Computed example of a mutant assay.
Amino acid sequence: MELLDIQNLSVSFDGKTILSDFNLSVVKGDKILIKGKSGIGKSTLFRMIMGFGKHHLGEIFLDKVKVDSDNIWDIRKKVAYVLQDTDIAEGKVSDLVDEVFSFKANKDAYGKEQLERIMSDLFLSPRILNKEYMKLSGGEKQRICLMLALLSGKDIFLLDEVTAELDVTLKQKVVEMFFDNPQWTVLSISHDREWEDKATKVIDFSGKVN
């Protein structure tokens, strides 16, 4: 049974076709890598799933519910979306964590032990919680964004180039964290081969699906 079903999706912007008649069926537990050259529509696909934009043709269903303006906030509560752009906030990391988990949907999603475990898994020192987020390195910001996604308690993840700033050891660690959990459904956009090595399906936006 499809968890995510995308039917004949077409998207255009300023007269340029970004996606044309795109179809994808995702079942619970799938681990999918989406690859292809920049500007070909990979990130646009994620934005459409999350309701950040309008498509001209086609339909998107999550849990058999059509993604539209009437239910988009319910959809977003089910999906953890980690963007390629990591400049998401200012202030201390601890303030960001507190703010994210003050939202009603996330209030009961994490505890101190879980936070410590995930930080350890991502090789993040507890001291980073007292640092200014915008002063962190690109790799540290990526790991903080991943930490927040993992703490959200969600089991559907859209990950857009989330290991681009990480070294090889960390890339492998992150891939294992997301792809080795059978309960999670993961779609990852990446140029890093570590994702392809463990993916159950590879979608190449040149048109080839493996």
Rank of each mutant, 00 (worst) to 15 (best):
L146V: 05
S102I: 00
L83Q: 15
L151S: 09
W73E: 05
N71P: 11
D74M: 09
D108Q: 11
F103G: 01
Y110P: 00
K135T: 10
A89Q: 09
F103L: 15
A89W: 03
A109L: 00
A80R: 10
L115A: 03
L148I: 14
L122A: 10
E59L: 15
Y81N: 07
D121G: 12
D95I: 00
A109W: 00
G53E: 04
G91E: 09
D95M: 09
D155N: 14
G138E: 08
L129K: 09
D85Y: 06
F101Y: 00
Q114M: 12
I60W: 07
S152K: 02
G58F: 05
I118E: 02
I72V: 12
K66H: 13
D70L: 11
I72F: 07
E90R: 12
K141A: 06
L115S: 07
V97M: 03
S125W: 03
K66D: 05
L151Y: 02
S120Y: 11
I118Q: 00
H56R: 13
H55V: 02
K154P: 15
S137T: 15
L146C: 05
E113G: 02
K77H: 00
Y133E: 08
G91V: 11
M147Q: 02
E140H: 08
R127F: 07
D108S: 12
L136G: 15
K78I: 04
D87R: 14
D68V: 07
D68R: 09
N106S: 01
D70E: 08
C145W: 06
F61E: 01
V93G: 09
F101Q: 00
G58S: 13
A105Q: 07
F101C: 00
S94R: 09
K78R: 14
K154Y: 05
L96S: 05
R143I: 00
K135G: 02
E59A: 11
A89D: 05
I128H: 05
R143F: 03
K54R: 15
H55T: 10
D74C: 13
K78V: 03
K92I: 00
K107T: 07
G111H: 08
L62M: 06
I118N: 00
M119K: 06
K112M: 11
A80W: 03
D98G: 08
S102E: 01
K135D: 14
H56T: 13
V100A: 08
K64N: 12
